[in-house]
């Protein structure tokens, strides 16, 4: 599905710290309930993180803090040592819905980040086309998002994220509005992309299977205010046939138990 690229991609050494968030706390109203409390996360060059938690626990809030769309009340976010106070050009975000603009063609959606950065029209179009080709979306360039299936739309959103040569990818439940079959396909697709580009990512999800399939490390976010209550290493990650393995199911069971413990407040 994914075509070979002509361009070379930055590869981080596995040990290098890409993103470091320390003790993030957030509440929306001055005397409202806390949403996040003391959340810390360190993303290395070879890492992929899956953050799992029930709906409404603060996953999107965490992702918004990591990319600088929101500011924490306490704590800091640093990308390669640089404090994040606003969106950083090397951090790309994929949202669940509404990520693509309905009034732009697929090609113009993919090229939008480059346009905002001032890349000349010819160059950004060429890059967008190239990325669409690599991601198996050739032929959709001049369509509008409404003319694509939900799965194709999310692939375009991923293309848009990758075209700017990001150093970190943040994904907010990117597949949760898709049907089960398409969702599984796109999970494989993301894994293929990761194997090819090796861009570290943080993916938040409320799906146990998705977390186990896509996270080298799986974090459990729970409580009110939410904190990271469990960090699980997932050594089977990276194998496209992981889903069929016993170790996958064992890992999913362990994660479910962790979520149950968290729900009971242990």
């Amino acid at each position: 599905m994914i075509q070979p690229a002509a361009t070379g991609y930055r590869k981080d050494s596995e040990s290098e710290t890409v993103l470091r968030a320390d003790d993030l706390s957030k509440r929306f109203a001055a005397n409202g309930p806390g949403v996040l409390k003391s959340v810390s996360i360190t993303v290395g060059g070879g890492d992929t993180y899956a953050v799992v938690g029930p709906s409404g626990c603060g996953k999107s809030t965490l992702l918004y803090l990591l990319c600088g769309l929101l500011h924490p009340d306490a704590g800091t976010v640093r990308y390669r040592g640089e404090p994040i106070v606003r969106p950083h050009p090397e951090i790309a975000v994929v949202l669940q819905d509404f990520g693509l603009l309905p009034w732009k063609t697929v090609q113009d959606n993919v090229a939008l980040g480059l346009k905002i950065r001032g890349v000349p029209r010819r160059e950004r179009r060429q890059k967008a086309r190239e990325m669409l080709r690599i991601l198996g979306l050739a032929g959709t360039e001049d369509r509008y998002p409404s003319q694509l299936s939900g799965g194709e739309q999310q692939r375009v959103a991923i293309a848009r994220a990758l075209v700017g040569d990001p150093g970190l990818l943040l994904l907010d439940e990117p597949f949760s509005s898709l049907d089960a079959i398409t969702r599984e396909r796109l999970q494989h697709y993301l894994l293929e992309i990761w194997n090819r580009f090796r861009v570290p990512y943080v993916l938040v999800t409320h799906s146990v299977e998705e977390a186990v399939f896509l996270g080298k490390k799986v974090l459990v976010l729970a409580g009110r205010p939410a904190a990271i209550v469990e960090v699980m290493e997932n050594p089977g990650f990276g194998d496209p046939s992981y889903r069929d393995k016993k170790t996958f199911h064992a890992m999913a069971r362990a994660l479910r138990r962790a979520l149950d413990r968290a729900a009971r407040g242990e």
Binding site: Y64, P87, L95, D97, F98, G99, L101, K104, I116
Partner: peptide, 21 residues
């Protein structure tokens, strides 16, 4: 939907970009 704005802001858009795009 404010997510449209968030998604374009995450690409580094300023006020003028949000207005235009």
């Amino acid at each position: 939907n404010p997510r449209y704005l968030d998604s374009v802001r995450s690409l580094g858009a300023g006020r003028l970009d949000l207005f235009r795009e």
